Amino acid sequence: MVRTHGGSAAPSDASGRRDPGRGSRRSFPLVPLLGIVWFAAAFYPVYYMFISSLRERSDYLEGSPWLPPLQPVLGNYAEVLGSGLALYFLNSLFVVTLSVALIVFVGFLAAYVIARIPSRAIRGVFTTFLMGLAIPLQAAIIPVYLLIVEMGLYDTLYALIPPQVAFGIPLTVLILVNFIRDIPNELFDAIKLDGGGHRRTLRSLVLPLSRPALVTVVIYNALQAWNNFLFPLVLTQSSNVRTIPLALQQFQGQYGVDVPGLMAAVLLSTLPIIVLYIVARRQLLGGLAAGFGR
């Protein structure tokens, strides 16, 4: 039914009622506009780092901060690569790889036991893991330092791995436990009736279905380990065991900061995380959206 008034027509349904959503769909697109504003605010720091890394140190403050330099240079990147950044990159990659591998391995097995084996003792273990989320990293740095010294790992790359694993396991277990609990019980019963044990259940059922959650915890823990500054600062001393965050300090002199060189170093240090996110973006979004349905 269509009612006319003054030459205009108002759409309505068969019962004569006007469609309330038709007018709202023609309203101003506020959500896309807010998305564009958010994208600009989030992208501008990356853009600023890039254009600043193309400036000479002497004329860093000249020109508009919104526009790229008229004569861009790549000398800052050459200086960064020649200052030992490759060694620091390998150090960070070594620490991140071992830390994330141990976190995911221990967290995955612990999450399966907590989610699938009902027991009061196991619930107590899960509560202990959750208590780890309430302990700030800064509050435990002195006991961590004493333990690392007693273990004889001080001033080595291996000193950075145990504390990183200890602080990464609680959240990993929490995410994986909730994800595994959302797997239908019928699938576990089917494997059990087929004669499969825990090893087959983990390999054939839980591991494939938990891939989005595993990718999520891998990216999260890799980001935390890659950007960690406190552990390398306290637990290492020699320059040959520096990681990327600690190595960025060398661009700060006694009387000033080499801002273009620092921006080039920061931009290069973020490339592995950006590539990891691009490669695993779909799995990451799926893991963030799932696992908390109950």
Rank of each mutant, 00 (worst) to 15 (best):
residue 186 E to W: 13
residue 186 E to T: 13
residue 187 L to Q: 03
residue 187 L to W: 04
residue 187 L to S: 02
residue 187 L to R: 02
residue 188 F to K: 00
residue 190 A to T: 08
residue 192 K to H: 09
residue 192 K to L: 11
residue 193 L to Q: 06
residue 194 D to Q: 06
residue 194 D to E: 12
residue 194 D to Y: 12
residue 195 G to I: 06
residue 197 G to P: 02
residue 198 H to P: 09
residue 199 R to P: 05
residue 199 R to V: 15
residue 199 R to M: 15
residue 199 R to G: 14
residue 199 R to D: 15
residue 201 T to L: 09
residue 201 T to F: 05
residue 201 T to D: 08
residue 203 R to I: 15
residue 204 S to L: 15
residue 205 L to G: 02
residue 206 V to T: 07
residue 206 V to W: 00
residue 206 V to P: 01
residue 207 L to V: 14
residue 208 P to I: 12
residue 210 S to L: 09
residue 211 R to D: 05
residue 211 R to K: 13
residue 212 P to M: 09
residue 213 A to W: 00
residue 213 A to K: 00
residue 213 A to G: 05
residue 213 A to L: 04
residue 214 L to A: 09
residue 214 L to D: 02
residue 214 L to K: 01
residue 215 V to H: 01
residue 215 V to A: 07
residue 217 V to A: 06
residue 218 V to D: 05
residue 218 V to Q: 04
residue 219 I to A: 03
residue 219 I to F: 05
residue 220 Y to K: 06
residue 220 Y to C: 07
residue 221 N to R: 05
residue 221 N to S: 11
residue 221 N to C: 11
residue 222 A to E: 05
residue 222 A to P: 02
residue 222 A to V: 08
residue 223 L to T: 13
residue 224 Q to D: 14
residue 224 Q to A: 15
residue 225 A to S: 15
residue 225 A to F: 12
residue 226 W to S: 00
residue 227 N to C: 13
residue 227 N to I: 11
residue 227 N to R: 13
residue 227 N to V: 12
residue 230 L to C: 12
residue 230 L to Q: 09
residue 230 L to M: 15
residue 231 F to N: 08
residue 231 F to H: 08
residue 232 P to L: 05
residue 233 L to G: 02
residue 234 V to L: 06
residue 235 L to K: 03
residue 236 T to Y: 03
residue 236 T to F: 02
residue 236 T to G: 03
residue 236 T to I: 06
residue 237 Q to K: 13
residue 237 Q to G: 12
residue 238 S to R: 11
residue 238 S to T: 10
residue 240 N to H: 15
residue 242 R to W: 05
residue 243 T to L: 04
residue 243 T to C: 06
residue 246 L to S: 04
residue 246 L to N: 02
residue 248 L to D: 01
residue 248 L to A: 02
residue 248 L to N: 01
residue 248 L to P: 00
residue 249 Q to W: 14
residue 251 F to I: 03
residue 252 Q to K: 11
residue 252 Q to Y: 12
residue 253 G to P: 04
residue 253 G to F: 09
residue 253 G to I: 11
residue 253 G to K: 10
residue 253 G to R: 11
residue 254 Q to F: 11
residue 255 Y to R: 12
residue 256 G to D: 10
residue 256 G to V: 04
residue 256 G to L: 06
residue 258 D to E: 14
residue 259 V to P: 00
residue 259 V to I: 13
residue 261 G to S: 05
residue 263 M to C: 08
residue 264 A to Y: 00
residue 265 A to L: 03
residue 265 A to C: 07
residue 265 A to R: 00
residue 266 V to Y: 01
residue 266 V to K: 00
residue 267 L to I: 07
residue 268 L to A: 04
residue 269 S to M: 04
residue 269 S to A: 10
residue 269 S to H: 02
residue 270 T to P: 03
residue 270 T to M: 13
residue 271 L to D: 08
residue 272 P to W: 11
residue 272 P to C: 11
residue 272 P to T: 11
residue 273 I to F: 15
residue 273 I to K: 09
residue 274 I to D: 12
residue 274 I to S: 12
residue 274 I to M: 13
residue 275 V to R: 09
residue 275 V to E: 12
